[in-house]
Design a protein around this nucleic acid. Structure first.
Lengths: 214, 214
DNA sequence: GTCTATAAAACGATAGAC
DNA sequence: GTCTATCGTTTTATAGAC
């Protein structure tokens, strides 16, 4: 059974239930959105604070390291949020077995809907900043690497649980990651959901092949 | 027969043979490299001029529209350069037929070597800037879209010439694009060539399957 | 076509009152 | 924890001499 959910970001983990998220969380949420859309250097601190409806002084209170610390924290938080999203599609409930082919299809379909519904603005919250800082800031690069690895681990485990060998499961996870990230890039640039649809069909087919060979 | 060449950028098209490239070309070359490594907003005009060994006044002489015009011109130029690179792998000489499976493998292998040899700095010259500006600058987004489309067209034609149907050829081109771009992102972030190797094997396999079904 | 000087704005960051 | 004022830099862009 596939989860009935969209690809929208889940509510902040540390938010008080039923209450408005704290200032720190609002800053991190706004950062993730703006960094993903306009990049790290392309997003000014003032824009972030305006979008967060946060007081100016709060930024350096919560992130004494300034913009770099905020960038790393934002990447880590987005990494957790997106990992939970992948888990919602690929990790079974208690004792259940996941239809990994269906989960793959559902994930790409959800991604295509989300990107189109945000006018091709919101896709991967980390990819933009990751390309910008991979050769510039080692702390932020490491945060992005950990985030990506955590997604790969979830996928790999799902495939392995479904019967695919360990090595092939890892490869499959990497293939799926590359397909969706490349499709995000092409989709945002062309302003079309087609690349995600095409990449999704190919990914599901690869997963099905791997299952058959196991 | 596959071309014996690396994935390094070809010499500027408009350079006087045997001579040093003109100021305008040097500015564009430096821009492409720096934009790809650090992004558009992350790269200052002064850095570009320093890297180009170009006089300061030259920038606004050749690009009266300022940084935005330079960005769009840089994207267009990189698009042509990379298209020629793809053609070198996938377009046959006179009357010849290309081994598209071998070309796919060779392309990914070359990409893996290049990215590792530049310490994971130089991968796709357009991806970084494309993600940054897709939702911010329509002229630059269109330049990136045209560049990507031109690469897809080359690939699609190659597959069609090799016997794959038109629709499937387009899909295959998109799949290959997504695989390499996603692999570039993951490879730069993890500082490992493995994603490119894995994506390359999968891409070659997809191409082989498509050929078999034709 | 090149070079310098400088304007004008945006940016990241800090200090200190509340 | 919040808010304002402001400092110092950096960045883009322009003006004008050569």
């Amino acid at each position: 059974m596939l989860p009935v959910m969209s690809l929208r970001k889940p509510a902040p983990a540390t938010a008080t239930p039923g209450d408005r998220p704290g200032t720190r969380d609002r800053i991190l949420d706004a950062s993730a959105e703006l960094f993903g859309r306009q990049g790290f250097t392309g997003t000014g601190i003032k824009s972030i604070l305006a979008a967060s409806e946060a007081p100016f002084g709060s930024l350096y209170h919560f992130f004494p390291g300034g913009k770099d610390e905020l960038g790393a924290a934002s990447i880590r938080r987005s990494g957790i949020g997106y990992r939970q999203l992948v888990e919602a599609f690929f990790v079974p409930g208690e004792g259940g077995v996941v239809d990994v082919v269906g989960a793959t299809t559902a994930f790409f379909t959800g991604a295509a809907e989300m990107i189109a519904s945000t006018d091709y603005a919101d896709a991967c919250p980390i990819a933009t900043i990751a390309l910008e800082i991979a050769s510039v800031s080692e702390p932020m690069r490491e945060a992005a690497a950990e985030a990506f690895e955590s997604w790969l681990t979830v996928l790999q485990s799902a495939f392995a649980t479904a019967g695919v060998g360990q090595v092939r499961s890892r490869e499959l996870a990497v293939e799926l990651f590359c397909a969706i990230e490349g499709a995000f890039l092409l989709s945002r640039t062309l302003r079309s959901p087609d690349p995600i649809r095409i990449a999704g069909l190919a990914a599901a087919s690869s997963v099905a092949d791997a299952l058959r060979s196991s």
